[in-house]
Amino acid sequence: MRALFISELERLWKRKLIWMMFAAIPLIVYATARYYAVHNLQVPLDSPEFVTSGNFPVMALIEQLIVVFNLVSLVLLTLSFTEEYRTGQLRMVLLRAFTVGQLFRAKAAAYLVTISLFFAAYLGVSVAVGFQMFDSSETTRLFHHVSPAGPGEVMGYTLKYYGISLLTVVGMGSAMLALAVICHTTTAAIGFGVGILLLSIGYPLVYLTFNTVLNLQLPAQLAFLSLTQIQYEGIAYLLADSSMGPGPYFPLFALAVVAGYVLLCAGGACLAFTRRDRWI
């Protein structure tokens, strides 16, 4: 099992595309920093949106989380699950003395390790760029927090923000994984993957609109069934002061949504991957 995992990791990291994605991190972070440098001129100093070297890592993640991180996750999954499988490369592995379930878990583990590394690298680079390009301040204002936070608290906040973000990306990745396993070509997997991303982005708007216009009186919280909505607003809510958050049950709800995606989609993908005949 360990050998299988390492062989998966090795193959994944032989791809130039993976290296290109990691090499793009400094460019993305730099572009984001330039954007915030301009943005800073328009926001008051005491706004949580005002970027300092302290909150830059979180702000840089917020700006790129929904598009960049979800797409990176999609690339990893498509490469590992669709391309290798559908082009017949995986035949070489399937013929060895492992079960298909083991192969699935090894692939999933290789994906988890790589996407975690991507988060870690992004955090590292944005800490460095933050200190280069922004002034530091003794206290930092955080979203939905009553009082400004000191350096230690900001560090904890940053780590928690990255951790929860990783969970949501993996949740989203579970849905993409299901598509990657089902689709017969990489282009189809990408198309549907980007499609589900756009769908998640569009859903809260559509839901809230219909809810208001048709006067359905459904709870607004259901907008957070979309993982991108959790990425957009939910993570800040999860880390909010209890007096300023959306309510005591929100963390449980958000956790259930992420867990639901992972269990349903990744579980379904695992079944589809292991149970079918392999005509490759």
Binding site: K16, L17, L71, V75, L79, T187, I190
Partner: peptide, 13 residues
Amino acid sequence: MPNALVSFFVSLG
């Protein structure tokens, strides 16, 4: 670009 996958994401980039 060497394949469809890379082409798509580089184009998007």
